[in-house]
Computed example of a mutant assay.
Amino acid sequence: MELMESIWKMAKNDKKKIVLAEGEEKRNLQACDKILKNGLANIVLVGSEEKVRENAKNLGLDISGAEILDPNTSDFTEGYAKEFYELRKKKGMTLEKAEKMVRDPLYFATMAIKTGYVDGMVSGAIHTTGDLLRPGLQIVKTAPGVKIVSGFFVMMVPDCKYGESGLLLFADCAVNPNPTAEELAAIAITTAETAKKLCNLDPKVAMLSFSTMGSAKGELVEKVQKATAIAKEMRTDLDIDGELQLDAAIEEEVAQLKAPGSPVAGKANVLVFPDLQTGNIGYKLVQRFAKAKAIGPICQGFAKPINDLSRGCSSDDIVNVVAMTAVQAQKGI
């Protein structure tokens, strides 16, 4: 069974309530229609009820099964403002400012997760990653024992022998511009756990670089080497290795020449990039040139599931991210 078929099946078996913070936007409305028709989740749309219904009608969509919450008129707004004030008052938050901020759709939606009214949140079709992360980190915060939020893509490459028959996870492709060695190690461990719980993979984690096992020197290589050592020390039960060039990470013949004896080289299904530039460029290259399906970015590390979208996403992309978010909620990822 293809990964997304499995994810859809799990989402349907235990429906979760997911909030779409950009409820007036066209692709979100199209996704809502598809999600409800397929029974993937219960949906809450944030926005003006009048605009949401008018836009859906103009698009010929049926969103009658969705709940619509307007931050400017909702009965929840006053309570959300008070709770947000209590969460942030030591940081200088005033009640007046909190009342204004929770009327922002992203802050309102994040408070809906915090209070347990919804199980997960998806946004990003018309907002930046920073717009999403800011309220998430202020309100929901990171999961216990997790130091950093990161983002990964599930890459499904057609007719491909690499990874698990073309299935690989790429991280971090969305959140951290230049992670430290310690942060890179944390990203590797978190992504390995996600690969197991969400994708049912036996993770083989490659710490990518332009060097393989000391073939090059310098500050950039040393960071990946240090990150690998930290990750291995923290989790001796996981197969994590590096530093590895991409070809050594995924191609058996190259691995035998460049990294003989590595438990990961030639078999990697989780690729950890040294920084956001390489990660973001890398996933887009594979998506465009190899015609891969890129699902995400999926955030990991939040106490409750909050997920970003690419502003170039399609409605089908939103449907898949919502399904992923629902399964994250089921599994506590």
Rank of each mutant, 00 (worst) to 15 (best):
E96P: 02
M93C: 05
D75C: 11
K26T: 08
G60P: 04
V44R: 15
I68E: 07
D70I: 03
A41I: 08
A56V: 04
L40E: 02
E83S: 07
N42M: 07
K89H: 10
A98L: 09
L95D: 00
P71W: 12
V52R: 14
E54I: 06
E78D: 09
M93T: 00
G79E: 04
L45C: 10
K57A: 15
D75G: 14
Y80H: 12
N28G: 09
S48R: 09
K90G: 09
M101L: 15
L61P: 13
D62G: 11
G47N: 08
E49C: 03
Y80A: 08
Y85V: 00
D75E: 03
L59H: 11
I63W: 11
R103W: 12
T94V: 00
V52D: 00
R103A: 02
E54G: 04
V102Q: 13
R88A: 04
F84H: 13
S48C: 06
K34W: 10
G92S: 03
L29N: 07
I68K: 14
D62I: 01
N72R: 13
Y85A: 01
L69P: 00
T94D: 03
K26S: 11
I35P: 05
S48T: 03
R103M: 12
C32S: 09
Y85T: 00
K26F: 11
D75Q: 10
I35T: 05
R103P: 02
G47F: 04
K26V: 08
G47W: 05
N58P: 03
E83T: 07
L61V: 06
E67C: 13
A31R: 11
K37V: 04
L59Q: 12
E96N: 14
R27V: 11
R27C: 08
A66L: 14
N42V: 08
E99F: 12
A41Q: 06
A31C: 05
G79P: 00
G79D: 03
E50T: 08
E67I: 12
D62R: 12
D62E: 07
K90Y: 13
K37N: 11
V46P: 04
N72W: 06
K34H: 14
V52W: 09
S48A: 02
K100Q: 12
A56Q: 05
P71S: 12
I35H: 07
G65T: 13
L69H: 14
E49N: 11
E25H: 10
D33C: 12
A98D: 00
N42G: 10
D70A: 06
D75R: 15
R53P: 06
F76D: 02
V46L: 02
K37T: 03
R103K: 15
S48V: 00
E25L: 08
L29D: 01
M101Q: 09
K37D: 01
K82P: 00
G92P: 05
G92L: 05
G79R: 15
G39P: 03
K57D: 05
A41G: 02
R103G: 01
E67S: 10
K82N: 08
K34R: 15
N72C: 10
L59G: 01
K97L: 14
G39A: 11
E50V: 08
T94W: 13
S64W: 14
C32R: 06
A66S: 07
K34P: 00
L69Q: 13
E83P: 00
I63G: 01
D70C: 09
G47R: 13
I63D: 02
K89S: 04
M93H: 13
E24D: 05
A56D: 00
E99S: 14
I35F: 10
V52E: 01
A41P: 05
